[in-house]
């Protein structure tokens, strides 16, 4: 599904240039759930931003289903992301003025991928799946942290992405809520056979994944 070949990414910091990712090389198969572990500052977020096609690498290749994305324009990357990638954030990032249902429909609304009724049906289905059918008309400020993250999960899955990226999805939740949400998370991704990359600090969570990648000082080690 994804293949990174000798990926390098640097940023300017003042007058110096910092190399965040150094010669990253890995492969993730279809339906595989892979955890990316690493201390703060190891380059996890940068790697996630490359895989989510938010920015291109400086050098190396990033292949999706065998297609090299490194030369894609921003518009092509956006289009691919909108159709094939779902993202779950640590901070949930729900739109505060939209209801839970409207938040879930957002990716399909933006990309005009389906009829309105169809979108609503799918969103309701997903909200039921994450156990929030009764809370569909509530705004994020009226939901608990766990509920917000479940809405975020539903939003990330509504367009049936090939790849799900989860950035510390339980980082903002207490232990009990975290395990509830993550149980649900794994249940859904396994059932839907969605290729998943999970960035986490939590080694217990990483243990549930099919495989673990360790990132340290911008380099990957198995």
């Amino acid at each position: 599904m994804i293949e990174a070949q000798h990926v390098v990414k640097s940023y300017d910091q003042g007058k110096t240039r910092l190399e965040i990712l150094k010669d990253i090389h890995f492969k993730v198969e279809n339906s595989e759930i892979v955890a990316i572990l690493g201390p703060s500052g190891s380059g996890k977020s940068t790697l996630l931003s490359l895989i989510s096609l938010l920015e291109p690498p400086d050098s190396g290749k990033l292949l999706f289903d065998g297609v090299d994305t490194t030369s894609w324009s921003e518009s092509q990357r956006t289009q691919y992301r909108g159709s094939n990638i779902g993202i779950v954030f640590q901070q949930f990032h729900l739109v505060p003025y939209l209801t839970a249902l409207e938040n879930v429909t957002l990716p399909l609304v933006i990309n005009s991928k389906a009829e309105k009724n169809e979108i609503l049906e799918r969103a309701k289905e997903l909200l039921s799946l994450v156990g929030l059918a009764e809370r569909s008309s509530h705004r994020p400020s009226e939901l608990s942290g766990g509920e917000q993250q479940r809405v975020a999960l539903a939003r990330a899955l509504i367009h049936r992405p090939k790849l799900l990226l989860a950035d510390e999805p339980s980082g903002n939740l207490d232990q009990e809520t975290s395990s509830e949400v993550m149980d649900l998370f794994f249940k859904i991704v396994r059932e839907t056979k969605t290729t998943t990359l999970l960035v986490t600090h939590d080694s217990n969570l990483a243990d549930i994944c099919d495989r673990k990648l360790f990132l340290s000082k911008g380099q990957l080690c198995s």
Binding site: S52, E74, S75, T78, G82, S83, I87, P107, I110, N111
Partner: peptide
Amino acid sequence: NLIRILGADP
């Protein structure tokens, strides 16, 4: 920014 991440083009 969020809607850009979710796939909205410029």
